[in-house]
């Protein structure tokens, strides 16, 4: 029987130059339900499909606020995500206390990147079994980052991770050009449409299984900008968005709607 001798720990390379434990951790990410993130010039959104283990159980949370300007979406082991989430929360609070500002998103992502990398180079440690999409706003605008168990981090315009996320990514690639100019509402709808691409045949978006997280820059009438705090929407709060991307409306949802949304850009809309 075939036995892999190079996957007992995360410090040994295989002769092909691979570190199997890290690759297995990346597989754990693919086990998690799909999450999508998109960033425009004014907003960064995260949308996620929540799973329930059985009919009787509750749905596992997928989106977590980190600080007022950052939130994450997770795919993989929720408990590992909680460790990272707590760490990020602490770092953001600490940064706010010492510098009195929102922690730059890249700085934050680099920190968890370095933290996760350590687990891939020390004997007896295990890589995090979770992938993250980090959405946040700082002084340089909205950002979206991908984080992988290997410690790899990368800034993205739009991305999806988790089970069947390839279909969502295909949708995102197709609409890539339009994201930058999108307003808040249109960006969320793009996210939900990408999410729908990844659904199994007989499943659909419901208020129970869909989560939406938004942050962005809000422009006041006098031209000054402020941060729209990262907020997670669940249940009835996402009903209108789900309705707006229902199958029958999909055909009509095109450029016209995008233009309408662009006009209301930066407006704070609480559904």
């Amino acid at each position: 029987m075939f036995r892999n001798n190079y996957d007992n720990d995360s410090v040994t390379f295989s002769p092909q130059g691979r570190i199997f434990q890290v690759e297995y951790a990346a597989e754990a990410v693919k086990q998690g339900s799909v999450v999508v993130g998109i960033a425009s010039k004014t907003h960064a959104v995260l949308v996620a499909i929540k799973r329930n283990a059985e009919e009787l159980s509750s749905y596992q949370k997928k989106l977590f606020p980190i600080d007022e300007h950052v939130g994450i979406a997770i795919a993989g082991l929720t408990s590992d995500a909680r460790v990272l989430s707590n760490f990020m929360k602490q770092q953001c609070l600490g940064h706010r206390l010492t510098y009195g500002r929102n922690m730059p998103v890249r700085t934050l992502v680099d920190m968890i990147g370095s933290k996760a990398q350590i687990n891939t180079q020390h004997y007896g440690k295990r890589p995090y079994g979770v992938g993250l999409l980090v959405a946040g706003v700082d002084e340089t605008g909205p950002h979206l980052f991908e984080f992988q168990p290997s410690g790899m981090t990368e800034e993205m315009v739009a991305f999806a991770i988790g089970a069947r996320s390839q279909m969502a990514r295909t949708y995102l690639e197709k609409n890539l050009e339009s994201f930058a100019a999108c307003g808040r509402e249109e960006l969320i709808r793009h996210g939900l449409r990408a999410l729908k691409e990844s659904l199994v045949q007989d499943r659909e978006l419901t208020v129970d299984n869909t989560s939406v997280g938004v942050t962005g820059t809000a422009t006041a009438k006098d031209g000054s900008t402020s941060v729209e705090p990262f907020q997670v929407f669940d249940q009835q709060d996402v009903a209108a968005w789900i309705e707006s991307v229902a199958d029958d409306k999909e055909a009509g949802a095109g450029e016209g709607e995008a233009a309408a949304a662009a006009e209301g850009e930066g407006m704070e809309v609480d559904p």
Binding site: T98, G100, R101, P104, D138, E139, T140
Partner: peptide, 13 residues
């Protein structure tokens, strides 16, 4: 200089 520490951040630090 976008995103770099401004005077208020520096003073806090």
């Amino acid at each position: 200089t976008a995103g770099q520490l401004n005077a208020a951040n520096l003073h806090k630090y």
